[in-house]
Design a protein around this nucleic acid. Structure first.
Lengths: 332, 332
DNA sequence: CTGAAAGCGCTAACAT
DNA sequence: ATGTTAGCGCTTTCAG
């Protein structure tokens, strides 16, 4: 592998000059530049980013800790983040935290050891006390994505509360009184906020929450399926269901279908999180759609700003969620 | 940020000793080890992987060039690869090639510049002549994933031909004579192989291919939708359709649905690629499911072997594809 | 406009 | 069993 020194020798200049033509970091005579460029061309030289990082103190690398690459929502998020980052000349290192503090800590440690210039994390439950402080302790710029946490860092997520409230209100408007809710993973802000939205809708209409109607799907499709099946098999089943994220929706649909119940005939359904193919499900899903592209792009934007040294007060951005009215609610 | 030197000074030893206790790379007195460990604990020292990489010549990093993070199939693949890699102590750098040689080249250049220890790529069309030689030229271990290419490198993908043939044969068994086929992106091996499977099924039954029935969906949902709509609006439309990948399937379903046709009543459908929620679509999809987990894990395994210096002849592994018989074919 | 030299933080001979 | 010393390949003062 040719090094900068090789190129310099061939071009008959010093390594420092080669470095400067490569980075445009100081004026060099047109003619010498040409010689250097010729030497680079001739040798097929490719600058060593590792050495550059060590000498320069910046790795041009950003770490992302995410919880479930298999979930299409997170896939879209990674995609959006990767694009924005690569546009800005950074590369993305991804780690999967499985939404668990222990693996999250491992991921973050590895990222920090690699001296990423910045970090984007979708914090697992309990992250505030374990891994987040570790990051801020190193001074590495950090932005939280998808979920919030009680720390001084930029955070960007979808608007959860109002969107979830609209979902439940829609059901209420249709006359439903007993509404089951399938919650996601406990301890993360999105779950809490969406549930609060549900609650707000209920109390807004003077309806008291019935604990029997709140299910913990734990953001796991199988768990959700089991829980929903149990609830819907009971004698006193609800007339409508609200699912709080896409994994919950899949589980819910499977459960309802396996019971031979029809949607919205036997039970109405509204969902937080949309799919590209939501209208191919039977029935078409009425859903609140997060704007992943904007969420990802915004997170990167905030991060880049921090990396440039901006030390304004942390921002908490909520990206609007769109309501897609289709058939599963029963009024398509 | 504390360095190894700092730790050494505090522990009253040399940097080299610290390095050795950290890496277990030579025997050190139990007592000195303890002192070093105490110093590490005290300072919160975290070893600098960048410096380590420069000095050691290995970055413990693997690059992945993939074509569409938004596609759940690739999301699953990235997930599988990430897990296998992290189990082996490597981190994953991902780049999205958008299935286009130009961006692929950009991704690969960036990865090579970062001196990844190995590389996994889902080659875009035309990659053999552009970016793949560049990789092998550097001596970086390489394994191709999802698609093959005519170069001397390990490659792992799903079994395409036989699986696709079975799909078409199933339709043939049901009496269909005019079968439309929606192909994916041209120029990549998976598209070619799957189409060959279709062809083999046809010729096996003495049926000649009708060019009007082959559609190029270009692995793009919208294109597929448009093409399918055109074909199905014609007077002489086929009685069955085979979709060659999941993006094509979405487009096909949208098209058929928008025409008010029913599946399998008006047209039967079988698909290459499965979804976790395939049986939630209307109708449930009869599909050939790739085993992403095995594909990803196998690719990593082959890569690690190469990185260890194995120079056996390149392998080409095809992971079996499972046939999921559901309703869209018309015989559920 | 360009070169020399120090140094980024670590590893790995080579000594002792 | 541990320390010394050279680098790894680049960036960046500091000189000229």
């Amino acid at each position: 592998m040719t090094t900068m020194g090789d190129v310099a020798r061939i071009a008959g200049v010093s390594a420092s000059t080669v470095s400067h033509v490569l980075n445009g970091t100081r004026k060099v005579n047109a003619e010498t530049r040409l010689r250097v460029e010729a030497a680079i061309e001739e040798t097929g030289y490719r600058s060593n980013v590792v050495a550059r990082a060590l000498a320069g103190g910046r790795t041009h690398t950003v770490g992302l800790s995410i919880s479930a690459l298999t979930n299409p929502y997170f896939g879209g998020l990674v995609h959006a983040v990767e694009r924005a980052l690569s546009d800005a000349g950074y590369v993305l290192i991804v780690g999967d935290s499985h939404d668990e503090v222990d693996s999250e800590k491992r991921v973050v440690d590895s990222l920090l050891g690699r001296r990423v210039d910045g970090m984007i994390v979708a914090p697992a439950a309990g992250s505030e006390r374990a891994t987040l402080p570790e990051i801020t302790g190193t001074g590495t710029p950090l932005v939280l994505i998808d979920r919030g946490a009680d720390i001084a860092a930029d955070q960007v997520s979808a608007e959860n509360l109002d969107a979830a409230r609209s979902l439940t209100e829609h059901l209420l408007d249709l006359g439903h009184q007993r509404i089951g809710v399938v919650r996601g993973k406990p301890g993360i802000s999105s779950t809490t906020e969406r549930f609060d939205g549900h609650l707000a809708a209920l109390t807004g209409r003077g309806i008291e929450l019935d604990d029997d109607l709140v299910l913990d799907g734990d953001s796991n499709t199988d768990t959700a399926e089991r829980e929903v099946r149990a609830l819907m098999s009971s004698t006193d089943r609800p007339s409508a269901l609200v699912s709080m994220n896409n994994a919950m929706t899949i589980g819910t649909l499977k459960a309802v279908r396996s019971l031979g119940l029809s949607i919205p005939g036997d039970v109405a359904l509204v969902c937080y999180d949309d799919f590209e193919w939501s209208d191919l499900f039977e029935p078409k899903l009425t859903a609140a759609a997060q704007d992943v592209d904007t969420i990802g792009a915004t997170a990167v934007e905030l991060l880049l700003r921090r990396m440039r040294g901006d030390d304004a007060a942390p921002q908490r951005i909520q990206v609007p969620t769109a309501f897609h009215h289709r058939n599963s609610c029963g009024c398509g």
